[in-house]
Design a protein around this nucleic acid. Structure first.
Length: 282
DNA sequence: AGGATAGCCTGCGGGC
DNA sequence: TGCCCGCAGGCTATCC
C-alpha cells in the first residue's frame, strides 16, 4: 500500500528513466482510469496523457505524483492501494500483464522505453491538468502540508481542536499529506502515543515527538526503498525493504521490541491498528 | 460542520 | 483440490 515513502522512492527511480524523454505514443486500455477534473477543459486522451511532450520533471506531494512536460501539461498519478508505474525497454512484442491499464512509448536519443501504469484494484488513477497551477488549485492546495516537512507546532495547530483519535487525524490527507496506515502506526509507536487518544488532548511536547517520529520513519523508509507489503514495486520493478524494520505494523500478538509485552490490535478510525498498550500510554 | 460510515475493487490466504 | 469468505485500505460520497 503505497504511502509517502513508496511514492517518493518511485519518483526517484522514475526520474533517471523518463526525464528528458519524448512521449511518442500512448495506449489507454481502460478509459475510466483517466479523469479530467470538471473545471478543466476536456481534451483527447493523447493530449491528456502527455503525447508529443518532453518530460521535464516529476513532482510529489503526499502520496500524489505529477508528471510534467515541457509545454506545461501535467498528468497526476495516484497509486491508490495497488498502483504501479514501471519503466522497461520497449520490446517488439511486450508481454502485457493483467491490469496494465495504460502504456506509453518514450524515446530519448536512441533509447526507447515502455512505461506502464498498472493497478489491479483500481483505487488509483490518472488525472489530466492543463497546467501545474490547475493541479494545485484543484487538488494539491486542499492537501495538508507534505508529511516530510511537518513540525510539532504545525501538527499541533492542525489537530488541537479535533475530537478524533490522533490516528484518524494522521490519516486525514487534508491534515497531513502522505501518512497512511503503516507509517501512522510506526510513528505513534516511536513517540509512545496511544493511537486512540483524542487529538486535542495531546500535549505540545508530544506533538513535537510525534512530528519528529513521522519525519524519521518516513526518511528511513525512503532510504530502504519503501515497504513492500503486497504489491509495491518501484519504477524498475524492485521491492522495498522497510517491512523488515516495522516495529508494530503487521506484528499483532508478537512481542513489543521495546518492552517485550504482546502487541495488540483493534480497529481505530476504521483501520486495523497495532500498538503496545504498555509503551504507548501518552 | 465535523466525524462516522459505506462502497469501490481484486488478490490472497485460511478454513472446510 | 477447490470453493467461499474475510480481509487488506486510499479516497469519495453520503449520512448523522
Amino acid at each position: 500500500m503505497p504511502e509517502l515513502p513508496e511514492v517518493e522512492h518511485l519518483r526517484r527511480t522514475l526520474l533517471p528513466q523518463i526525464v528528458g524523454a519524448h512521449v511518442q505514443s500512448v495506449l489507454l486500455r481502460r478509459s475510466d482510469i483517466l479523469q479530467h477534473p470538471h473545471s478543466g477543459k476536456k481534451c483527447s486522451p493523447e493530449t491528456a496523457l502527455l503525447v508529443n511532450g518532453v518530460i521535464a520533471s516529476v513532482l510529489r506531494k503526499g502520496k500524489n505524483l505529477a508528471i510534467i512536460v515541457n509545454d506545461g501539461r501535467v498528468l497526476g498519478v495516484h497509486l491508490g492501494m495497488s498502483g504501479q508505474v514501471r519503466v522497461g525497454p520497449a520490446a517488439e512484442n511486450p508481454k502485457i500483464e493483467k491490469h496494465e491499464h495504460c502504456e506509453w512509448l518514450l524515446k530519448q536519443g536512441r533509447t526507447r522505453r515502455r512505461m506502464i501504469f498498472k493497478d489491479p484494484r483500481r483505487f488509483g488513477g490518472l488525472c489530466s491538468y492543463p497546467t501545474f497551477d490547475a493541479l494545485e488549485q484543484e487538488k494539491w492546495n486542499f492537501l495538508g502540508p507534505d508529511a516530510l516537512t511537518v513540525t510539532g507546532s504545525l501538527l499541533h495547530d492542525r489537530c488541537c481542536d479535533s475530537m478524533r483519535p490522533i490516528k484518524a487525524a494522521l490519516l486525514d490527507q487534508n491534515v497531513l499529506a502522505g501518512v497512511g496506515n503503516i507509517y501512522a502506526d510506526e510513528a505513534l509507536f516511536r513517540s509512545r502515543i496511544n493511537p486512540r487518544k483524542q487529538a486535542r488532548r495531546i500535549s505540545i511536547s508530544s506533538y513535537d515527538l510525534l512530528a519528529r517520529a513521522i519525519v524519521a520513519v518516513l526518511t528511513e523508509a525512503i532510504d530502504s526503498g519503501g515497504s513492500t507489503v503486497r504489491s509495491y514495486l518501484d519504477a524498475n520493478g524492485n521491492v522495498g525493504d522497510f517491512v523488515k524494520r516495522h516495529q508494530v505494523y503487521g506484528r499483532t500478538g508478537l512481542d513489543c521490541v521495546r518492552c517485550g509485552k504482546k502487541l495488540r490490535s483493534a480497529q481505530v478510525a476504521q483501520r486495523t491498528t497495532v500498538w503496545c498498550v504498555s509503551c504507548q500510554s501518552e
